[in-house]
């Protein structure tokens, strides 16, 4: 089953002949830095207690997927995320400070502290607001793609889900509609080992499901950031050309022969080896990336802790564009009884 797998880097980080994508050394370094920041973010999260950070799903082990796929986009392209994808945001240049505000639900959080941590929304990064459900966002990417084409834009929409997401109604609805309308969408399924795949599907691969919709299905080594980049870049280019969607299965669950096995591999280590071959990395350089990120995150968390909570009256904002008479009345009622409030009755 591994023969059809897109691989760029071998186990020692050497690019297979003719497979390495054309990326400048600054881009390679930026990809590395985003992966490092994501790893540092995981470590920072583990140091916060549940009172501060109620909810966190580590990215550890799948940095190559979120970062490699995101780097395949242009800045004007959109990400329609699943939950817990800070690595994609870091790849788009979102700061630790912004993520920390979102974690702690502070006033500076773009979502005004209205969502659980990990459910990010960053318009500044063309990163759509995140739902908790496994697949309902997939058709949003498709509709946005149909809308962009109707407007004459060449925007491409990158969307992610996990294996559980492939069981959702919306996976079928989204892929089918995307295929019928040749929507400019790249679907990336993160096939991770902690998802009990046999419970979710009897299909040997997720990529095989593409054939049923009449779209290409590609399997890629999810520990190999250049392979993810390469496969997604081809899919993005295809979408932008008007040739329709692609299903990309990024595997961190690979089968060797008949035995499914979690190849416990660190995508950052493999990429470091590659960068070392390119003379772009050594242990000291790596340490500098980690140290800088660690210091920046500590500062960001400290800052977020001092930031205020959202205003009381913001509870009623953004239900609709304008307050309805009913919401205005409920806001007045709260103002009469709340012990701490900024609302004028």
């Amino acid at each position: 089953m591994t023969t059809d797998l897109v691989v760029v880097l071998d186990a020692d980080g050497r690019a297979l002949r003719g497979r390495a994508p054309k990326l400048a050394s600054e881009q390679l370094t930026a990809i590395y830095d985003a992966m490092v920041r994501s790893r540092v973010l995981d470590e920072g999260a583990s140091e916060l207690g549940p009172d501060e950070l109620s909810h966190y799903e580590p990215t550890h082990g799948r940095e190559a997927i979120d970062v490699g796929a995101t780097f395949a986009l242009q800045d004007s392209d959109w990400i329609v995320p699943r939950k817990h994808q800070p690595a994609a945001l870091l790849a788009r240049g979102v700061l630790f400070e912004e993520l920390a505000n979102a974690w702690l639900g502070k006033i500076e959080d773009p979502t005004m502290g209205r969502q659980l941590p990990g459910h990010y929304s960053f318009r500044s990064a063309n990163f759509l607001s995140t739902s908790s459900t496994a697949g309902s966002h997939l058709s949003h990417a498709v509709g946005a793609g149909i809308g962009a084409r109707a407007r004459g834009d060449d925007t491409v929409f990158l969307t992610f889900c996990d294996v559980q997401g492939t069981s959702s109604n919306d996976f079928h609805a989204g892929l089918n509609l995307a295929a019928v309308h040749k929507a400019p969408v790249v679907f990336v399924v993160e096939h991770a080992p902690w998802e009990a795949s046999e419970r979710e599907t009897a299909s040997a691969t997720i990529a095989a499901k593409g054939a049923a919709y009449g779209i290409p299905g590609v399997r890629v080594d999810g520990h190999d950031v250049l392979a993810v980049y390469r496969a997604c870049r081809e899919a993005v280019d295809r979408a932008r050309r008007g040739d329709g969607p692609t299903l990309v299965e990024a595997c961190t669950w690979l089968t060797d022969g008949d035995t499914p096995a979690w190849r416990c591999e660190d995508p950052i280590k493999r990429f470091e080896q590659h960068l070392a071959h390119q003379k772009l990395w050594d242990a000291a350089i790596g340490q500098r990336h980690f140290d800088t990120a660690t210091a920046e995150l500590a500062e960001a968390i400290a800052l977020a802790r001092t930031a205020g909570d959202p205003d009381t009256e913001s509870l009623f904002d953004d239900v609709f564009m304008n307050l309805s008479p009913q919401l205005r009345e409920q806001r007045r009622e709260l103002a009469r009884t709340a012990t701490t409030t900024t609302i004028q009755p």
Binding site: H140, G143, I146, A173, N176
Partner: peptide, 12 residues
Amino acid sequence: GIVGAGVGMAVY
């Protein structure tokens, strides 16, 4: 799918 696509069009 119809409504989900509509949500995507609207946010765009």
